[in-house]
Design a protein around this nucleic acid. Structure first.
Lengths: 222, 222
DNA sequence: ATGTTAAATGACCGATGGTCAACTATATAG
DNA sequence: CTATATAGTTGACCATCGGTCATTTAACAT
């Protein structure tokens, strides 16, 4: 009788099942970091997890629900780190820099975020989707609260900042082409194009513009 | 001897081949509008085009190269329409509205744009990719020229506006969840979340903020 | 020991993008 | 007009994918 819940060959108690589910998710996260979204196969994950493919589907209804779960975890993880990074004497720029840096630091958050709509759209049960949206709402509220303090904005303004930062981050990340083309020798004009779409300056400059825009706006007019 | 190039059972001349390629692309575009990206299958396209699947691969190396070609076409088509819609007395807001409306009007441009990096990343030959980037550069320049006149900005400023609009458009489109969830009855909180991420106001408000930010910036500092 | 329950399995399914030896429509040569 | 050469076209075929489900069997209760 261990007080620690051990994982038997068969997980019977809900504790053991949660443990096994968690183990699969950990394996999946490592595997995802290795190969990315497109090359991620359920058969391979099963092999790496030491279970049969069918077993994966006892714990996740579809491949997409598994990704959605990974995304949720990374969202919560990130928002805690980001909120922790905020101080009450930040400029738009330092705020944007911290936001950018913390999202980049997580190996799965951004790749899943930019694929989120495609992932969810086609293969997640509605109740699971609703649950996920609620997690999202909570995280947005938490981040908005921190933002309100850090940037000295009203709650409504801070909420708008957070949502808009999300949109901008997705756009900037999506457009950033550097990782895909790595060390290929490209002609100078194309190389310049890619550089000019580098996500870091793109995000930070425009984040600052938007935050200043929101700050300057007369709140009575919105 | 027709002066018009007819399509035989076999396309021998390069003219005939171009014609057949074009016919396949037209079919593909209609088909894409019907079923979207994920459900688009090469076997179905072959059937609808009246050729064998293998024939498709004589004209396009991969599914992704076909999509890339469709994207290029839609980009050129859109930029012409958008430039035509510009006048020399526009505000940031009317500019953003026209940009939004013209991109939405095209049935394939945005869906392909937001998937572009994923599409290109994994399955397009490098030379084809370079070619595509050059088309992109040209279109950006053309739109920037029109933007410079319409918004009375320097060329550098106009170019920055255009690139940034692209990023914002991708982010806003990606985040817009209304099409996916249609008429499902969702709880009020989730429904509100989705509404608050509606791409049209999100894009237009932030586009204006960014344009005004760029306009206000001291150009010597950049 | 025995019976009961349900977790785990992996052969199997339909569908996908992509390939290629075989076929044959077409242009050219004799 | 026929024979030959060329090359565009074909569809059976392949590996792999996400997902299913009848069967097996580990783990518990009695």
């Amino acid at each position: 009788m261990n007080s620690v819940v051990a994982i038997n060959q068969r997980a019977r108690s809900s504790e053991q099942k949660a443990l096994r589910r968690h183990a699969v998710l950990e394996t999946a996260e490592v595997y995802f970091k290795e190969v990315g979204y497109e090359a991620f196969s359920m058969a391979q994950l099963a092999k790496k997890s030491g279970v049969a493919k069918g077993t994966l589907y006892l714990y996740f209804n579809t491949r997409e629900e598994l990704f959605l779960t990974l995304y949720e975890q990374s969202l919560v993880r990130w928002s805690q780190i980001f909120i922790g990074s905020l101080s009450d004497t930040m400029t738009s720029k330092t705020y944007a820099q911290s936001l950018y840096k913390t999202t980049q630091a997580d190996g799965v958050f951004l790749p899943l975020l930019i694929r989120l709509e495609h992932v969810i759209e086609h293969n997640v049960a509605i109740p699971r989707l609703i649950e996920s949206k609620r997690v999202f709402i909570n995280q947005v509220e938490a981040v908005a609260a921190g933002t309100s303090t850090a940037l000295r904005l009203s709650t409504a303004q801070a909420t708008e900042v957070v949502k808009t930062m999300g949109v901008l981050l997705i756009g900037a990340t999506q457009t950033d082409q550097s990782p895909a083309l790595d060390d290929e020798d490209l002609p100078a004009d194309v190389q310049y194009l890619i550089t000019s779409f580098s996500s870091e300056p793109l995000f930070i400059k425009n984040a600052a513009r938007i935050i200043e825009g929101i700050r300057a706006e007369d709140m009575s007019g919105v």
